[in-house]
Structures are given as C-alpha cells and as structure tokens.
C-alpha cells in the first residue's frame, strides 16, 4: 500500500517536473539562444511561409532540380518511408519505370540511385551532388542558362561533410531551386 502511494505521488511529481517544467525550460532557453531553429527554420517570402530549410519539398517540373521520391508526397505531417524490402516486385518495378523516365528527360548517363529511391522520412531536404550534376544539362536547356553558371549555383548550396568527416556531401533542393527562381 505504501508502495502504491509513493508510486502515485512520484509519477505526479515526475509529470510536473519532467513532463511540464523540463520541456518549457528547454523551450525558454532555446527561444532566446536559437530563435530561428527552435521554430522550424522557416523561410518566408513577402511575409508568407514558403517552407523550411530543413524539410524537403516536391519538385518534379522541367525547370527545377527534382527532389528524391517520397512515400508521402512530401506531406510533412505524415512522415515515413515505403518500407519496401529489397526483393519487393513493387520496388523493382518502380525503380525501372522511374529510371527510364529520368533517362528520357535528362540523358542516357547512369542515374544516381538517390533519384530513384525514396528517403526514410519522405521529407529528405537533400539530393546528392551527383544527382544535381545529372540534372544540370536539362535545367540549362529549359532555363537557357549556361551549365557553368548552374554548377556554380549548385556548388553554393552544396554542404560538405560536417567537419570534413560526418555524414555525406549533399545539396539542399529547396534552397537550390529558390535560388534558380531569383535568376
């Protein structure tokens, strides 16, 4: 019986201290120190939110660098992957179809695999530098820009490994395409 009372009281105390005070303390400190990140690293244009630096968006038009495939159409309120296994017929068919389409739209060069695979979150904000390079000739054609200029823009939005070691080099697809629209 004593254990029961202690348990109930302890959970009450934990709920208030760890469940309410702790998250609010983290919120309070970070609103002051990191006000941009803490609210979602939002990008605004003319006072309206047009996205987050961290969340990928779907780009599939000819004039844009295409983003990776998404199991949820970049619905940021419903994250997740396809969870198709390596021997799934659905997966293999999808990859084949998309690979053919990409080669028709771009060139017959081998396609970097990130362009024909879905990400884990369905919100991958990045493509690989190889995937960007693969699309440069098409964008140059559609936008009447030189490939050299495009490579410079891609380079500007390419992040190297953190400290030269962690993670992989990557290009932020939303920032890259927003920059294209400025030209």
């Amino acid at each position: 019986m004593n254990d029961l009372i202690t348990s109930a009281l302890l959970i009450l105390v934990f709920t208030v201290s760890l469940g309410i005070i702790y998250p609010f303390a983290v919120w309070g400190v970070s609103q002051v120190v990191f006000p941009h990140q803490v609210n979602g690293s939002l990008i605004e244009k003319d006072g309206k939110i047009i996205g987050s630096e961290l969340v990928g968006q779907n780009f599939s038009g000819e004039k844009y660098f295409h983003s990776r495939l998404s199991a949820n159409n970049y619905d940021a309120a419903n994250s997740g992957g396809t969870n198709l296994g390596p021997t799934s017929q659905k997966l293999i068919d999808r990859v084949k179809t998309d690979a053919e389409k990409l080669q028709t739209e771009n060139s017959t060069k081998p396609i970097p695999a990130d362009l024909v695979t879905t990400s884990a979150s369905g919100l991958d904000p990045h493509i690989s530098p190889a995937a960007a390079e693969f699309q440069i000739p098409r964008i140059a054609r559609e936008r009447n820009m030189s490939e050299t200029d495009l490579r410079a823009i891609v380079a500007k939005h390419t992040e190297d490994r953190t400290f030269g070691i962690f993670g992989e080099p990557r290009v932020n697809i939303l920032m890259l395409n927003l920059e294209l629209n400025k030209k």
């Binding site: 990776r68 992957g81 198709l84 396609i111 695999a113 024909v116 695979t117 990400s119």
Partner: peptide, 29 residues
C-alpha cells in the same frame, strides 16, 4: 547495393542500397 536494380542506376556513386535512407546520413551512418 541491391543487385535487382536495373543496370542504368548507379548505386555506388552514393554508397550502396539507398531505398529508405536519407542523403545527409548516407549508407555508412
């Protein structure tokens, strides 16, 4: 990588099997 992918897909350029993985982490991470 996945040997069932068609030959015109280059998996090695991004490190291997990439279905369900995020670009920033890559295959190793």
């Amino acid at each position: 990588g996945n040997p069932l992918y068609p030959k015109n897909v280059n998996q090695q350029v991004i490190g291997g099997n990439f279905e369900g993985k995020e670009t920033r982490f890559g295959v190793a991470n």
